[in-house]
Simulated assay, not measured.
Amino acid sequence: MNQLLSLFLKNWMKPLLIDQEINEISKKVTRSELIALFMLKQRGEATMSQLASDMGLQKSTLTNIRQRLTKRGLIQHYRDANDQRITWISLTADGEEFADRVLETMSRMLQKIKDVLTPDEMEQLIVLLLKVAKVVQTTEQEQKEEHTTFKRIKIEDE
């Protein structure tokens, strides 16, 4: 079941958008914002560097996410008392409540799926979804690489 939850987080909740609650959640936060909220929920608090590393993002990208979530009142940030270069981030009470509500909604949806499948079918579903996710992830990575390739230009000295 944890594998299935992880799969939906990694590929956002596209397969679950048939559920109205999840559709509403997807309009409020991006996938990256939601992952940041869940990671902060698990950790309690984290430095910008820790969270960026955990999410596989550049610190500048996380700064944008932090700004958006702070603006919505879901997280708070403050400077380290001993080292002003370090910024700590944690969930606000509203952020904690939002993360809990999203997890409950996703758990209910996943439970509905689990209720209609036998244990063998559930295992097959997880294997198949992981296989599909791998293909989708590979395709997305290939597309990113196509856009970030550099062309070497030969420069001749006169």
Results as ranks from 00 to 15, higher is better:
A36N: 04
F38Y: 12
L16R: 07
E24L: 09
L16N: 09
R43N: 10
L37R: 05
L17Q: 15
L34G: 08
F38V: 10
R43F: 10
E24K: 12
I18C: 09
K27E: 09
K14P: 03
Q20P: 10
E24A: 11
N23K: 14
P15G: 02
M13W: 13
V29M: 01
W12F: 11
S26G: 07
V29Q: 03
Q42Y: 13
K14M: 14
L16G: 06
I35H: 14
E24R: 06
L17K: 15
E33F: 02
D19I: 09
E33C: 01
L17S: 14
Q42H: 13
I22H: 03
Q20G: 09
I25G: 01
S26D: 07
I18K: 12
N23Y: 13
A36L: 06
I22G: 03
S32C: 06
I18R: 13
T30N: 08
L16V: 05
A36W: 04
K14R: 15
I18H: 13
E21H: 02
P15H: 04
Q20I: 08
W12E: 10
D19Q: 12
L40E: 04
N23E: 14
P15T: 00
M39Q: 07
K41V: 00
I22W: 05
E21S: 08
R43M: 08
L16H: 09
F38L: 14
M13Q: 10
I25H: 03
W12V: 00
Q42M: 12
F38P: 05
M13C: 09
Q42S: 13
A36Q: 08
E33S: 00
R31Q: 07
W12T: 01
E24F: 07
K27T: 12
M13H: 11
S32Y: 06
S26I: 01
R31E: 00
M39V: 01
P15E: 04
Q20C: 08
V29W: 01
A36H: 04
I18Q: 12
E33P: 01
I18S: 14
R43Q: 11
W12C: 05
T30I: 04
F38S: 03
S26V: 03
Q42K: 13
K14T: 15
I25Y: 07
R31K: 10
L34I: 07
K14V: 15
R31W: 02
I18Y: 13
W12I: 00
Q42C: 06
M39N: 07
K14H: 15
K14W: 14
I35N: 11
L34H: 11
M39K: 06
E33M: 00
